[in-house]
């Protein structure tokens, strides 16, 4: 397949690209989830990943953050080939991944959850400022800072996950099922925060149910179908195109 898209992949390390997936095949044991995926996200660019259930969106996000190692192909982050590297090297290279669902340490408190990443990035001195920033973003987390994360509601756990990556201020932010479980007001907050990060030069890879939200935020849209990008285009093109693609049965080209 390998549709080039608006930002064509160059050969060799492209320092300007936040993320480059080259001919990536990946899966879980005997199950293959991604086939021949080529995708480049330039620094500061926002990409929305769209597709039906089981299309491979989450798998693509996991490959991009090192959680899943591709069986073939390579993953280049900020010009460094990290294909076989463990996930923490991705994080240190500036990838922040908010996985889908309740991805928090249930047995740690809200504050401890946040401390783990803030401490790594900002050190002991920046800890307080980082925490304040997170609580300013989602005040409810501040109220529950001593509560075990596992006892939070689904939406609150989602906020905690998002707070971690938003405060992180990475080079590339990956958000899987960005607003699932969040109250409308919080969805708005989250998008405002993302918009700010974008303006400061953070690249985004967003998987989102609310396609309209995603299109408003992102420059580019990638449609995945059965583990392969079948369409890549600008948000404007996507707006017209998606109506037909998403509401008709998947094609098998």
């Amino acid at each position: 397949m390998g549709l080039g898209g608006a930002a064509p992949a160059k050969n060799g390390a492209d320092v300007s690209a936040a993320l480059e997936l080259r001919r990536v095949y990946a899966g879980y044991g005997p199950f293959r989830a991604l086939f021949d995926v080529n995708l480049t996200i330039a620094a500061g660019e926002a990409v929305a990943l769209v597709g039906s259930n089981g299309a491979g969106k989450t798998s693509l996000a996991r490959v991009a953050s090192g959680l899943v190692t591709p069986s073939e192909g390579s993953v280049v982050v900020n010009g460094r080939d990290l294909t076989r590297a463990p996930a923490y090297r991705y994080a240190r290279a500036g990838v922040a991944h908010a996985p889908e669902g309740r991805s928090v340490f249930a047995t740690l408190t809200v504050e401890e959850n946040l401390e783990l990443s803030i401490h790594r990035i900002r050190g002991r001195k920046g800890l307080k400022a980082g925490l304040e920033q997170a609580y300013a973003l989602y005040p409810i987390l501040g109220e529950r800072r001593q509560q075990l994360a596992g006892t939070l509601s689904g939406g609150e756990q989602r906020m905690l996950t998002m707070a971690r990556v938003l405060v992180d201020a990475p080079r590339l932010l990956i958000a899987d099922e960005l607003s699932l479980g969040l109250a409308p007001l919080m969805v708005q907050h989250t998008y405002e925060a993302l918009q700010q990060l974008r303006q400061s030069g953070v690249a985004l890879l967003v998987i989102e149910q609310h396609v309209t939200h995603a299109l408003a935020l992102c420059d580019r849209v990638v449609i995945l179908d059965r583990g392969t990008p079948t369409w890549i285009g600008s948000s404007e093109q996507a707006r017209t195109r998606l109506q037909t693609v998403l509401h008709s049965p998947p094609t098998s080209n």
Partner: peptide, 19 residues
């Protein structure tokens, strides 16, 4: 704190940039 985090989820710990 890191030790407790790893016990619960080594993967999530790695996503936080910790080996």
């Amino acid at each position: 704190l890191k030790m407790r985090a790893v016990v619960e989820s080594p993967r999530l710990t790695e996503l936080n940039g910790l080996a």
